[in-house]
Structures are given as structure tokens and as C-alpha cells.
Simulated assay, not measured.
Amino acid sequence: MAFHEVRFPTDLSFGAMGGPERRTEIVTLRNGFEERNTPWAHSRRRYDAGLGLRSLVDVEALIAFFEARRGQLHGFRWKDWADYSSAPGGEAPRVDDQALGVSDGARLSYSLCKTYGQGQSAYVRPIRKPVESSVRVAVGGRELDPVSEFFVDFETGEVLLSEPAPAQSDITAGFLFDVPVRFDTDRIDISLPTFNAGQVPNVPVVEIRI
């Protein structure tokens, strides 16, 4: 299995339905109370790509992309139109959108992430697939030059500073990002009569760990 650094056609993913999924194990005790736990540290997103199909041209594009990925075999990038920016509401990224860490005076590498919620219950989501040329980084509020002062690995979401930031400096970033996914089926069933009548095929897509 490999990961193909290509994005599913965005005009098709725009009409898709989906979002985050959690796994919670619930045990009801004899006294009626519950014990709840989860084996997942991170949520997993699922989508239905079939809902974005509006024409035979879209069907052809879907089939071509599906065949090039060999069904479930290879992963690819997916734009989640409901959540693709470090800034709220899908706005353009700002350099202080997300906190990446605090410098110890020696550290060079920081991982992109997005925080949901506030306080102790906040969830920090790793961002592995930033969009190329969209990442902005700042040290202590000063924006860095993307050419000379930092490097971004767009396949892993790692930011590498050219030199260590002063100790106790806040490292922040803003960025656009994709979700690493694969098809969750090796089969696509499409009937032209039913498609023309408004019935779309089910094409499940699921997030993968990178």
C-alpha cells in the first residue's frame, strides 16, 4: 500500500457528506451506572463521495480516480469542505491560528496541529497533509520567511525551523490542509437509468492513519 499525493476532485468532494467518527465502549453496571472508554485517541472521518456526482462527466472522473488508486489499495488527499483551514469558518489562514509549542531554545521540529475546543477538554488533531504553499509560521508573533527561515514537509505535516527559536517563544502557524483517506470499497455500482433518475451510488471514503 502506498499513499498518492493527489487530491480527489474538489468539485466532487464539495457535494459529499461526512464528518468525524468516534468509537466509545460503554458498559452498563449492575447498579445502572455506566463506564465509558475509548480505544481511539483520535477521531476518524468518513465521507460518501457518491453524493457529489451530478453528471456522467463526474461519473467518469470518479471511475478514473478510483481505478488509478486501485480501489482501496492506495491512499489519497481529500478536501473536507466543512473543515479545511486552521482559521474558523474556512477563512484564510492567519499566522497565529494554531499553537504548535513553546521553544526550549534548541528544538527545530514542530508538528502541525489543529485544536478543537478549549481548556482541559480541548482536542488536538494532528495535521499530516497541509496544502502546499499555504503554511505560515511565526515565532513570538513574528512571521517567518517561508523561503529562508523554515521548511515544511507537505507529506507529514512537520515544520523544520532553519535555526532554534529563542527560549520560551511561542511557535504558531496557519495553514490549509487535506485529510488522508482511501476508498472504503473495492467496488462501485452505477446504473445509468437510476443515476439519470436521481439515484446516486454509494462511494464510501475513510480517513487513514499516517
Rank of each mutant, 00 (worst) to 15 (best):
A92H: 10
P39V: 12
E132F: 13
G75R: 05
A41S: 04
A61R: 10
E207G: 05
R46F: 02
G71Q: 01
R30L: 12
F177E: 09
L108N: 09
S191H: 11
P130H: 15
S111W: 08
Y84I: 10
V205Q: 10
Q118P: 00
G89Q: 00
D58M: 10
R142P: 01
E60S: 04
S133Y: 14
L144I: 04
L56E: 03
A61V: 05
G75H: 04
F154E: 09
S43I: 01
M1Y: 03
Y84S: 12
A99R: 15
V57S: 07
N196C: 06
K79G: 09
A106R: 07
L160G: 03
P39R: 07
L53S: 04
I127H: 04
R187M: 11
V147E: 15
T28D: 00
S134H: 11
S133E: 14
V147D: 14
L100E: 10
D189L: 12
G140F: 13
R209P: 02
T185I: 03
P126L: 12
A16E: 06
L53D: 00
P180R: 12
T156E: 01
S121K: 03
L73Q: 15
T156F: 03
A138D: 09
Q98W: 04
W40C: 00
R77C: 15
L160V: 11
G140R: 13
D189S: 12
E155I: 04
G198P: 06
R36L: 01
F183L: 11
